[in-house]
Design a protein around this nucleic acid. Structure first.
Lengths: 416, 416
DNA sequence: CTGTTAGCGCTTTCAA
DNA sequence: TTGAAAGCGCTAACAG
């Protein structure tokens, strides 16, 4: 068993080295204040070093710390014959620790399987290393990608993440906000595309860094990711125009959401820019769900002078349109050209693969995290928050085609 | 401003009443040890009471606690002119608090906008009120439903939840396990359908309650949700048989996963039960993704004696099959009957709507949470964990049909 | 460079 | 019934 120790230490050392930082046990060329096997509370961002040589049973057999709850820093100190302060320093990579002691401490940590108690660390340091992430609907395929992206980068920076999906219920949101405050999150990313801002007052008044998508004025500690809807939507409209479409409908999201309005605005502007008529009847309000898309298409088909192409405010809506056109016996893109928005992963697997405007979920997640991290690390709060921009762009697939000659193709219900 | 107070108290009181519990300030008919505006650390499960009358600005204007970090129990105590112990008792609904004091405390809490610090609570109580939830792939539509379900019930019991999506990377999993231990989770639900069990040793040795899907022997503190695959798959097979299909293929998940093996086993058993031949060539190994489904169908179409129906180990695979049959110019269900597994929400929106075997994600989430909660509340650890069972069942939609007469229908690549 | 010590915010004895 | 005080596990002065 003793034979394991050098090996274990070596692994930790290497892990530290890999991070390109210095540890007392092993001075590296570059001096870097941030070092340590566990994430560091005070300094820059870290990647945790995972270790754990001694197996559970081994540990039990060592007898000392038999089952009485998780071990604390004291057990480690005792075993390494140092003070708890030294253990703490070692863990946090404070560079003043003697190599010899550091070695002993790491060895002890490995042997007893010690994992520091985050609650205690948070309490004393005042930093929880937790970010909150509020999404509207995790069951909507758009959001899991963001959650995943956010988690990836958070983990990479040793941040924990409290995810919550609040739907459209303000009470759920209020509860979520409370939970986050109680857990003392250091920042919250709000990816809901327009929930009532007043609900975040508790967060704001506590000066907790926040990042929104598409909100307007940036207050101190509040960042904003501005989506450049126009860029992609204009591409989409021009693509349709190039295919000779002139009667283009737009199915929006709920117009109570700022983002939905912004997308519709972008559509209208893009149409007008190239002199295409915007028929108000072609502006349908949907709700960003498949059902909404289905209903919207039905409305569209009831129109006298039907559009030949439809642009949707999100992909789920477009899926609904596809689904409904199947019901109606219509074929996409032959009978109707269709473009979505978001480019969720499923879009490319649709039948036919959906042409859509991409709004990168990974980038949103990355930007949101960066915004929060920057704000947390900033000494003086920025005077008015930071604004980030994300460009959208068209992704061509198979759901659009040249406009058909006969625009009178019937609406034949598919026989059941 | 003073006028607000009675109102605020009333709201809290009502919230307490709604919970049907007693508080010192307001003895309710039923005596219930668990009571309190914030969740209770010691007793049963709670629903938090959300309050917060005094707005941020009001609070600021009250001048006292100007911005210097979050307020602590001391400020509340001072303002209510009681000791911090009394504040603590009030919050936790200890029944010995005088109504008069309780009122004062709640008022102070409201006025200063006090939110207890969970880290401190966790530290002293040894209970974090956090459960971990490990899923394999949150971007797979099957899992978000589970995450949502789990969150719903967790919030309802005042538990926080640490979700993590680990993919198939053992290192990510190891890291996740470490994170959870550091945050001192009280239990972990593992919904990965068969990741290497050894990776959870650190959890096990710490006697942290765990719940798996489909693992074998139940150890102490380890529960298991057993999925009754046979029930639903047998229905599916018999449904196909009733439609005169005899050549039925099965696209499994990666056979390294126990659950994938179990599903395939159920398929084979169901076939044999009714005397249908199981052609080994009809047993294709997929990987539970769309791409896998697409590849699998290609393999199937290369077979000399093609099957007329395909059963898939999950819905994503079935989606892939649909997608590929579109490429191949085949039509479902005319040319091929198709059945999925899981019944993810998207299944009903497919073209055509997918007949599939339902494995309720909500129920899994509920069962998993219940299992964890039961284990946490249990005094003596159960001798060998608890086993729960979830039944599956067929959901009929439009992706199956009577077998076609001409089984020689060609494989005509769809013209691009 | 290392150890001692004073808390972080809260719960929970133990007295009063 | 209430308050004083002792920690929970950890970090960060402050001495030595």
């Amino acid at each position: 068993m003793a034979g394991d120790a050098p090996d274990a230490i070596e692994r930790i050392r290497q892990a530290l080295l890999r991070r390109g930082s210095a540890s007392a046990a092993n001075p590296a060329p570059m001096i870097d204040k941030s070092a340590g096997g566990f994430h560091n509370l005070n300094h820059g961002s870290e990647v945790k070093v995972s270790s754990g040589k001694a197996s559970a049973t081994e540990r039990q057999e060592q007898g000392r710390f038999s089952g009485e709850g998780p071990l604390s820093i004291h057990e480690v100190a005792q075993r390494a014959k140092v003070s708890i302060a030294t253990v703490s320093r070692t863990i946090n990579g404070v560079p003043t620790v003697t190599p010899e002691l550091s070695r002993r401490v790491w060895k002890a940590i490995e042997e007893v399987g010690y994992y520091p108690n985050t609650h205690a660390r948070s309490l004393v340091s005042g930093r929880s290393r937790i970010f909150g992430l509020i999404v509207s609907e995790i069951t909507n395929p758009f959001f899991p990608e963001i959650v995943q992206g956010f988690e990836d980068v958070a983990v990479h920076h040793s941040y924990e993440i409290l995810t919550t999906s609040v739907g459209h219920d303000p009470r759920r949101l209020a509860l979520a906000v409370r939970r986050m405050i109680e857990r003392r999150v250091e920042g919250v990313a709000i990816v809901t595309f327009g929930l009532e801002e007043a609900l975040f007052d508790e967060l704001k008044s506590r000066k907790i860094p926040l990042v929104f998508i598409d909100v307007g004025p940036a207050l101190p500690r509040i960042s904003n990711i501005k989506i450049d809807y126009l860029y992609g939507i204009r591409q989409a409209v021009q693509h349709l125009a190039a295919l000779r479409h002139t009667r283009i409908a737009f199915i929006s999201g709920p117009l109570s959401l700022k983002s939905a309005v912004a997308r519709q605005r972008a559509f209208v502007d893009s149409m007008e820019e190239i002199g295409l008529p915007v028929n108000p009847k072609y502006l349908i309000e949907g709700n960003h769900t498949m059902e909404g898309g289905m209903a919207a298409l039905r409305k569209i088909l009831d129109l006298r002078n039907r559009p030949t192409a439809v642009l949707c405010s999100n992909d789920m809506t477009a899926f609904g349109v596809m689904r409904q056109s199947y019901e109606e016996g219509m074929q996409i893109p032959r009978d109707l050209s269709l473009i979505g928005f978001d480019d969720i992963r499923l879009a490319q697997f649709m039948i036919p693969p959906l042409t859509t405007v991409k709004m990168s979920q990974t980038e949103i997640a990355q930007l949101a995290f960066d915004a929060l991290l920057a704000e947390v690390q900033r000494e003086a709060p920025s005077p008015s928050g930071t604004e980030y921009t994300l460009r959208t762009s068209l992704v061509l697939r198979d759901s659009t085609a040249l406009v058909a000659n006969s625009s009178t193709r019937g609406r034949t219900k598919r026989p059941k």
